[in-house]
């Protein structure tokens, strides 16, 4: 029986929750889950896996795509060929997956977010989520897949009775790429276009005095504060925080719009955000047409409640 080889998504000693999607994926396909893990003390429930292969190498080397080919070669030597090699669709997962596929010149499908088990068909989104492509692998050997986070984690529910843990020495490490270190984001200029998470406030904020409360909320949530034009016009926040046609166009992962009714000009500047959450008193506010989630309520109350919850955590 072939197995699915999971290349663990780890970073800074953390075993990412995204790995659960990979486990879930294996479970659906009913293949044994093997996992490649580097040296380190990861908080991971090993009973998900049929086999855990502990590589005797540093995390940074493990995450170097130039090494993954040799590691997999060695794994195959030792445990036979897997049917699939799976990564999460994270920055390093994608990097390694594409390189690995090229290394073996095998097919690769990335960012899978669904599948049809019977047909062995994988779904992946194309054209910015507008359509899903249904893809089937025709090859005989193994393939490389990457899995979109959040797609299958609910299936990560099968524990293995026996988990075999193997230690494995790493292959010769590539010298052509080396990890130099993490970069702490210098907190100098705020660039709202680069932020992952924006809390944006609009005319509904009412008074200048209220701004501080939102700054505090943004700090608590590690979000960046932006605003719509009326707030900027009143000079309550600096110009570079303006979202909209005449300000900045942003595409964060989450755009939390508070007290913004959603003038066309504003919408144009944020509509491509991955997830838009709108808080507004007026259920008719146009912003709700663009938002993924909405809270109909007073923005200040929502702010204060959030702060309360966050501080309580």
């Amino acid at each position: 029986m072939s197995y699915g080889l999971i290349v663990a998504d780890v970073r800074k000693g953390t075993f990412d929750e995204r790995n659960l999607d990979l486990i879930g994926f294996c479970n659906i396909l009913e293949v044994d889950a093997y996992i490649l893990l580097p040296k380190g003390d990861y908080d991971v429930d090993l009973s998900y896996f049929k086999r855990v292969i502990r590589l005797n190498m540093e995390e940074a080397d493990f995450l170097n795509p130039l090494n993954i080919g040799a590691i997999v070669e060695k794994t195959i030597e030792k445990f036979g060929r897997p049917s699939i090699i799976i990564f999460s669709s994270s920055s390093s997962g994608m990097e390694m997956a594409s390189y690995l596929a090229g290394y073996f010149n095998v097919p690769i499908i990335t960012d899978i977010n669904g599948l049809s088990k019977e047909e062995k068909v994988f779904f992946k989104s194309c054209y910015s989520e507008k359509v899903y492509a249904h893809l089937r692998l025709k090859n005989e050997g193994f393939s490389v897949l990457t899995i979109r986070s959040g797609s299958f984690k609910q299936h990560a529910n099968k524990k293995c009775e026996v988990t075999e843990t193997e230690e494995m020495d790493p292959p010769t490490l590539s010298e052509k790429r080396s990890f130099l270190g993490y970069v702490e984001e210098e907190k100098q200029e705020i660039d709202i276009t680069k932020a992952n998470f924006l809390i944006s406030i609009g005319r509904g904020v009412g008074k200048k005095e209220e701004i501080a409360g939102y700054e505090e909320l943004a700090t608590l949530l590690k979000a960046t504060l932006s605003a719509s034009r009326p707030v900027i016009d009143k000079q309550w926040l600096p110009k570079e925080r303006q979202v909209g046609t005449s300000g900045k166009t942003v595409k964060p992962k989450v755009y939390l719009a508070m007290g913004i009714s959603g003038a066309f000009q504003h919408i144009a500047g944020m509509k491509d955000s991955e997830c838009i959450i709108a808080v507004n008193k007026d259920p008719e506010a146009p912003i709700f047409q663009y938002a993924h989630y909405g809270i109909i309520g007073d923005m200040h109350k929502v702010r204060d409640k959030l702060k309360e919850l966050l501080k309580g955590l």
Binding site: M94, S98, G102, Y103
Partner: peptide, 15 residues
Amino acid sequence: EDDQFGVFGGYLAAL
């Protein structure tokens, strides 16, 4: 933007 594979660069490098 169309297929959103994100594979080409890595694959080519490996080749």
